[in-house]
């Protein structure tokens, strides 16, 4: 394009570069709404936390709550179960966490864990009365035989990690807010 140079219109002219750059930047910015629409919508986010009434859960019992599409176990532990969990030497554990790490201070009788086995994502048994609780009195995952103790820690079986503790807080003595 020798003609162009003679005509004084250089391809690298500032104007041409500015026009092309603005177009490019505009296109990139315009792409954002089309990507962001795939993120959770407001109605989904509004359900991102749930409040659970725990006043009706007697010691030794537990409930399952659906939170963000997955089960959460809320367990009211007995004194004996807390003792049992505290007595375990830390060296015996696969995923080394103390019981105190897994509950909130002043609410040691409440254990809140995700009901998702850390092995391959099955829902462990042991929450509803009458279900098998495994060798350590916590939960038992029937898929591949993982046993969890009364602090939700993995003790036996293929699962690599303790049951995950979600973010939660006590709104008052009778209400737990998960998420």
């Amino acid at each position: 394009m020798t003609n162009e140079a003679e005509g004084g219109a250089n391809r690298r002219d500032f104007l041409h570069v500015a026009a092309a750059t603005m177009g490019g930047v505009g296109a990139v910015v315009a792409a954002w709404p089309f990507i962001d629409q795939m993120n959770p919508a407001k109605d989904t986010l509004a359900l991102a936390s749930v409040e659970v009434d725990i006043s009706n859960i007697a010691p030794g019992e537990a409930v399952v709550v659906k939170w963000r599409g997955k089960p959460v176990f809320v367990r009211h532990r007995t004194e004996a179960e807390i003792e049992q969990a505290r007595a375990v030497p830390i060296a015996d554990l696969v995923d080394k966490q103390t019981d105190a790490d897994r509950v909130q201070e002043g609410h040691a009788d409440w254990l809140v864990v995700m009901g998702v086995c850390t092995h391959l994502g099955c829902v462990p048994l042991g929450t509803r009365s009458g279900e098998e609780r495994g060798d350590f009195g916590g939960w038992f995952c029937p898929c591949h035989g993982s046993h969890y103790d009364t602090a939700g820690r993995i003790r036996k079986g293929p699962a690599p990690k303790n049951l995950e503790v979600p973010v939660y807080s006590f709104v008052n003595d009778n209400t737990v807010k998960i998420g």
Partner: peptide, 9 residues
């Protein structure tokens, strides 16, 4: 109403 930028799209 609820989807991000839904009103625009």
């Amino acid at each position: 109403r609820d989807v991000n930028y839904g009103y625009l799209i």
